[in-house]
Simulated assay, not measured.
Amino acid sequence: MSITAVPLRPIEKGTLTKLWIGIFLLLAGAAVFAWHATARPIAMNGTAEDFLSWNAGRSGVIETDSGLQYQVLEEGDEAGSPGAGAGVIVNYEGRLIDGTVFDANEQQGLPLDGVITGWAEGIRLMSRGARYRFWIPPALGYGEDPPPGSPIPADSVLVFDVELIDFISREQLMQIQMQQMGLGGQQPEGAAPGQ
C-alpha cells in the first residue's frame, strides 16, 4: 500500500487579512443585530425618555420642537388645517405604549382648546381626511397628574391614532353639541356663551 502525499499550497498574500476582515464584519453585523433586537424591549420597559429616543429613530417618525412625535399614516386633502380655537370632528384611539387602550371615539366633536397640549399641537398639523399617529411625551400630555380613575400611569407616553374628519369654528361645534344633547341649539340656562 502506498500513501500519496498531497502538497498544500501556501496561503496567498492578503488571504489571511481578508479572513480577519470577514470575521470582523461578521462580528460587527452580529452586534448591530443584537442591539436592534434588544433596543425595542429596553425602550418599551424603560423611561418615557428611553422610549421617545428610540421611537424618534424609526422610519417615518417626525419630531417637533416641543417633543411631539408623529407619523403620517394617510395624507389629507391639503385644504388647510384647524386653527388654535377651532372645533374638530375626529375618529381616534388613545393607548399606552404597551397597547392598553384608554380611550376611543368615532365622529367625536372636540374644541382644540379643551384637549391636552400635545394632541392639540398634532391636530393642527393635519388637514381634512388625514390620519396621523401621535406619540405624546408626558410634558405635553398628563405628566404626573393623569385623570383620576384612568388607566394612565403618571409620566406616560400617550399614543393616539387620529383621523381628522372635519374642522369647524368653536361656535359651530357648540351648536352641534347642544343639538346632540337635545337643546335644539338653545343656550342652557346659566351657561356663558362659548362654554
Score class of each variant (00 low, 15 high):
129 G>R: 05
114 G>T: 13
168 I>G: 04
130 A>P: 03
161 D>M: 04
154 A>Y: 01
175 Q>P: 01
177 Q>S: 05
149 G>T: 08
168 I>N: 00
169 S>R: 06
99 G>H: 10
171 E>H: 05
161 D>N: 10
175 Q>N: 12
167 F>M: 10
171 E>T: 09
140 L>E: 05
126 M>Y: 08
141 G>I: 03
160 F>V: 04
166 D>T: 08
122 G>R: 05
161 D>E: 11
175 Q>I: 13
124 R>C: 03
183 L>V: 11
171 E>N: 06
177 Q>N: 00
77 D>M: 04
150 S>R: 10
97 I>K: 14
152 I>C: 11
134 F>V: 10
134 F>I: 04
144 E>W: 01
102 F>D: 11
116 I>D: 14
135 W>G: 00
97 I>C: 07
167 F>P: 07
124 R>A: 02
143 G>R: 04
144 E>F: 02
119 W>N: 01
134 F>W: 06
77 D>E: 08
85 G>H: 07
163 E>K: 11
78 E>L: 13
114 G>W: 14
135 W>I: 02
160 F>S: 04
143 G>P: 05
157 V>H: 11
81 S>E: 03
104 A>M: 11
112 L>I: 09
123 I>K: 02
152 I>P: 05
153 P>A: 10
116 I>G: 09
93 E>R: 15
146 P>V: 10
114 G>S: 14
106 E>D: 14
80 G>D: 09
87 G>Y: 09
152 I>E: 02
99 G>Q: 09
90 V>K: 10
135 W>E: 00
162 V>C: 04
102 F>E: 12
128 R>P: 13
133 R>N: 05
158 L>T: 07
99 G>R: 15
124 R>F: 02
130 A>W: 09
166 D>K: 06
129 G>K: 08
181 M>R: 12
129 G>N: 04
151 P>C: 06
170 R>S: 10
120 A>V: 00
82 P>M: 13
159 V>D: 10
79 A>E: 11
115 V>K: 02
183 L>Y: 15
120 A>H: 01
161 D>Q: 04
93 E>W: 04
180 Q>R: 09
108 Q>L: 14
176 I>V: 14
168 I>A: 00
163 E>L: 13
167 F>A: 07
147 P>T: 03
112 L>S: 01
167 F>G: 07
134 F>L: 15
96 L>D: 07
98 D>T: 01
102 F>M: 07
90 V>W: 13
173 L>E: 05
160 F>D: 02
179 Q>M: 10
133 R>K: 13
105 N>R: 06
148 P>K: 10
95 R>Q: 15
108 Q>F: 13
144 E>N: 10
138 P>V: 06
162 V>I: 14
180 Q>I: 08
75 E>N: 12
155 D>K: 00
147 P>A: 06
92 Y>D: 01
93 E>D: 00
102 F>Y: 15
81 S>A: 13
129 G>P: 03
171 E>L: 12
83 G>V: 04
137 P>A: 08
85 G>A: 14
150 S>Q: 14
152 I>S: 04
127 S>V: 12
94 G>F: 09
130 A>S: 15
94 G>T: 01
91 N>P: 01
80 G>Q: 13
82 P>V: 12
172 Q>F: 03
147 P>S: 06
128 R>L: 11
172 Q>N: 14
156 S>M: 00
172 Q>A: 15
170 R>M: 02
107 Q>S: 11
148 P>L: 13
178 M>S: 11
182 G>P: 03
154 A>T: 00
110 L>M: 13
134 F>C: 07
93 E>P: 01
